[in-house]
Amino acid sequence: MKITRTLTSAAALAAAAALGFAASAVAEPAAINGTFAVKGGDDGAVVTAASSCNPVVNGCTANLTSTVGWTSVATFTNGKWNFTVTKPDGIVCDNGSYAPVRIAYSVDAATMTGTITADSNGDCPGGQITQVPFQLTKIG
């Protein structure tokens, strides 16, 4: 009986240790701080990001500035950094007028990959919604 109790205790300790390692293996979400090259969407653009959240939790924000002229505030929600950019004259409508394009970015905090969704429907009759993948690569 003592052997059974010892094996049961050892199994319980091993399970607790495994849970402890599993919990520590799940890293806290990364703050989006530094300078990043953009691949996809605004290829060639560089984005500088600054967040003061530590640890990163839902609702955390970061200020973003790009080398192509836009600024935005990213908000962390459920493992992703999300932000929008509006390009005032981003599309030419069928009637020749210009209309703004709203671009929504969603970036996975762990991989720094995500999707860009551009929406011109609200400001240009017959506008379109497009979605493309992109990646941020830390360069500084």
Score class of each variant (00 low, 15 high):
residue 29 P to Q: 06
residue 10 A to W: 04
residue 81 W to I: 07
residue 77 T to Q: 07
residue 34 G to S: 04
residue 82 N to E: 04
residue 24 S to E: 12
residue 122 G to L: 06
residue 48 T to V: 14
residue 105 Y to H: 12
residue 34 G to C: 07
residue 94 D to I: 13
residue 133 P to N: 15
residue 1 M to P: 14
residue 47 V to H: 00
residue 115 T to G: 13
residue 30 A to S: 15
residue 15 A to T: 10
residue 66 S to D: 01
residue 2 K to L: 13
residue 129 I to L: 02
residue 140 G to W: 06
residue 16 A to E: 03
residue 103 I to Q: 08
residue 50 A to D: 15
residue 80 K to Y: 08
residue 27 A to K: 14
residue 98 Y to T: 15
residue 31 A to Q: 12
residue 125 P to A: 11
residue 8 T to Y: 05
residue 132 V to G: 01
residue 50 A to V: 15
residue 105 Y to V: 10
residue 130 T to E: 11
residue 83 F to D: 02
residue 98 Y to G: 08
residue 72 S to E: 05
residue 128 Q to V: 14
residue 25 A to Q: 02
residue 33 N to T: 12
residue 107 V to K: 00
residue 119 D to Y: 04
residue 65 T to C: 02
residue 51 S to T: 15
residue 4 T to M: 05
residue 76 F to C: 02
residue 92 V to C: 01
residue 32 I to F: 09
residue 79 G to C: 01
residue 125 P to C: 10
residue 138 K to W: 05
residue 78 N to T: 10
residue 126 G to Y: 06
residue 28 E to T: 13
residue 12 A to Q: 03
residue 93 C to I: 11
residue 19 L to F: 15
residue 122 G to M: 04
residue 65 T to P: 11
residue 101 V to T: 15
residue 6 T to F: 11
residue 43 D to G: 07
residue 60 C to Q: 10
residue 128 Q to E: 15
residue 129 I to G: 02
residue 101 V to N: 12
residue 72 S to A: 10
residue 94 D to Q: 04
residue 138 K to I: 05
residue 48 T to I: 08
residue 12 A to K: 03
residue 134 F to P: 09
residue 54 N to G: 05
residue 40 G to D: 08
residue 22 A to L: 09
residue 6 T to I: 15
residue 94 D to E: 10
residue 123 D to P: 13
residue 108 D to E: 06
residue 39 K to M: 00
residue 17 A to F: 09
residue 1 M to A: 14
residue 91 I to Y: 00
residue 36 F to K: 00
residue 74 A to Q: 00
residue 73 V to K: 04
residue 41 G to N: 11
residue 96 G to M: 12
residue 116 I to A: 05
residue 36 F to W: 06
residue 51 S to G: 15
residue 104 A to W: 09
residue 38 V to N: 08
residue 95 N to V: 12
residue 132 V to I: 05
residue 114 G to M: 12
residue 30 A to T: 13
residue 96 G to R: 09
residue 119 D to G: 07
residue 113 T to W: 05
residue 134 F to E: 01
residue 114 G to C: 11
residue 125 P to L: 06
residue 43 D to T: 10
residue 49 A to R: 12
residue 113 T to S: 06
residue 46 V to H: 06
residue 110 A to H: 05
residue 108 D to W: 01
residue 44 G to I: 13
residue 122 G to W: 02
residue 131 Q to F: 04
residue 77 T to L: 07
residue 117 T to N: 02
residue 89 D to G: 07
residue 91 I to W: 00
residue 121 N to M: 13
residue 123 D to K: 04
residue 60 C to R: 11
residue 85 V to G: 02
residue 100 P to L: 05
